[in-house]
Amino acid sequence: MKIKQTVTRVLLGLGFIGSFAAVAAPALPTYADCGGVPTSIINCSAGDPSKDTSGKVENNPIWQILLIVINILTGGVGIVAVLGLIWGSIQWSTAAGNPAQVQKARTIITNVVIGIIAYIAMFSLLNFLIPGGVFNP
């Protein structure tokens, strides 16, 4: 069992590394210059103290990075939940007559469901607390 798991993991890892290494990463055009550091994904000219004196938190580069992270994470909740469910179902299918592995698959699926419920609770609470909603950057 140990050997099979190790081999599978090594092969999966090699596959992933291989599939990513094959792409020559395209050079991103530079958007802005943040204190001498060129950036591609955030526009930080608004956060430059010499150009922006409004003092608004929305114009801060750190705020913009936070928005990107929130955007990525909220987009991924459902996708990762589907990933977990399918992984659990594959484990269930391959269990054959082994009750221990069925139990393992059931635990995975239960945890996915708990995660979804926790996310919904968090979302509702934040929408209740913060006027205007948090997920509309």
């Binding site: 469910l85 399918i86 659990g88 179902s89 594959i90 299918s93 979804i116």
Partner: peptide, 17 residues
């Protein structure tokens, strides 16, 4: 068990959506 796993995999996307 194979059928249970198949059904969960098939409805996973629909349920989450």
């Amino acid at each position: 068990n194979a059928v249970i796993g198949l059904v969960i995999a098939l409805v996973a996307t629909t349920i989450i959506k």
